[in-house]
Nucleic acid binder design. Sequence first.
DNA 1: TTGAAAGCGCTAACAT
DNA 2: ATGTTAGCGCTTTCAA
Lengths: 329, 329
Amino acid sequence: MANIQDVAKQAGVSIATVSRVLNNTSKVSEKTRYNVEKAIRELNYAPSMLGRNLRNSESRLLLVLIHTFSNPYYTEIINGIEDYSIENNYNILLCETDNNQQREDIFINMVRNKLADGIISMNPTVHVNKLKELSKSHPVVLCSDYYEDTNIPYIAIDNTTAAYRAVKYLINMGNTKIGLINFNEKLLYAKQRRIGFEKALNEYQLPICHEWIQHSDGLTFQDGVETMRRMLRSKDRPTAIFAISDTLAIGAIKELHAHGIKVPEEMAIIGFDNIAFSSMTTPALTTVSQPTYQMGYRSAKMVIDRIQGASVDNVIMDYELIIRESTLG
Amino acid sequence: MANIQDVAKQAGVSIATVSRVLNNTSKVSEKTRYNVEKAIRELNYAPSMLGRNLRNSESRLLLVLIHTFSNPYYTEIINGIEDYSIENNYNILLCETDNNQQREDIFINMVRNKLADGIISMNPTVHVNKLKELSKSHPVVLCSDYYEDTNIPYIAIDNTTAAYRAVKYLINMGNTKIGLINFNEKLLYAKQRRIGFEKALNEYQLPICHEWIQHSDGLTFQDGVETMRRMLRSKDRPTAIFAISDTLAIGAIKELHAHGIKVPEEMAIIGFDNIAFSSMTTPALTTVSQPTYQMGYRSAKMVIDRIQGASVDNVIMDYELIIRESTLG
DNA sequence: TTGAAAGCGCTAACAT
DNA sequence: ATGTTAGCGCTTTCAA
């Protein structure tokens, strides 16, 4: 592959001049420019980003940490991140950590190694201390899940209130026996949504039955199936369920169908996230929609701002309750 | 951020020695190694990949071209690519092209620019000539969709036979009026699956009714809904449908439900891809499963082999018919 | 076992 | 308007 030297020689100019026409950085005569461009074409030359980035000490690469691609919740966030990044001449490196500490370390080190300029983490299980440490010297932003008591900037919704509203809606629909399908509360959003759930029940002086609060081991459809299976073991059965994520809610509906239990007639279900599938289930799923694309877009803006030395503030976004068939009993 | 010079100075050695302990590349005395490692720790040093890569003229980055993250078909392929890559010390850059030629160009140029060492393309709409051109000088591999008459190595399944088998299964279940939900045939796999479909019908001397062959504009759930809506306009209705992808099949089922048409009793449906969601629908979807993880894993092996100068052969993988409820009428 | 020095491909300050 | 040159951070000969 030709390099800048080859082009310079072929065009009969210095490498500085080639660099100038490449970057349009100062005046070059029409004739010289023409010659250089001709040489570039003839040699099929493309400038090495490695050389350029080393010289400029930037990589224009953003790391996006994510637990797994399999969760469709992330799809639109990533689209948002990608759009803002491309608009600003950055590329993104999607890093799936699989909850694997070693992988997390690799990716975190890529920033220290100058292979990436900043990190957007959507990976709640990441080793928090390492990220906090990194954040002191490098741009880091948290998207959609965050940690309390760190100084890492984040963008998220008010999970507590969103859950509170969702459950309140179930109550207003006439439900008094309401269950919760939750996930591990080491995730802040899980904890917050549980608090919102309890707040609504307390406000209406409804009982919080422990058999109706089930914790899932994961966030796949199958986890939803299994969690609902456990829930159905209790003698008495709730008439409505708030599931902390759409994938769990959809799995839960599948299991209810398997038991011949009608949704929403016998049990109403509300999910969280408004993933693409959620409108395709039968019945279509009522859910809480987060502005995922915007969250991605703005989180990309946040890291890039930080890369460029600006300071950024935390952002709380709005959410929306999307009412579909699964609660219209 | 400290660099190799700082470490050398702090440890009282030359930068060459620091590089040696970093890469374990030749003998270093116990004492020197200790001093260097101490300095590294004290300075919180991490080697710059930019410098290293420039020097080694490699980036250890793989580009994965994909039309959109939104299609869950890709999830497991990406997991496979990622696993093999990480095992072999490569990272992957997921590039969403959105059918945007400009974006495709950017990504293709990244390889020419030495920012990436190779490309795995799963993006059927990519500008074929550019990719073919690139493939002459750089490692490129096609995964799951490919082009005829190019010399770019690929890994895929035998789409024609897979479709043939799927439709034959519908026939054996007693269906004689079979429809097709297809996608744009500029995609080779769409064409191949249509050919397989026709082959089965011809073999059993069943009619190919043009009103029962509908082409979708896209591959989202909503596209499936709309395509089925069009299909239902015909006076006579097929008793079974072969849909070229699960997302389309699932959208189609949704539309059938909306019309009160029972699946599979009144219409059987078979999809293609076995995406995670396909077992969660009601009824669960019968589909053709591709070994997506393996396809990803092996395509990563193929590019990396090419990067290392080996020549690689095309690979045809096996598929499997997964029978679920949507055809058990 | 270690160090000096060249060079990977590029940009930018300085000189002309 | 163009050329010369230093240097980004690293690896790897070659010498000692």
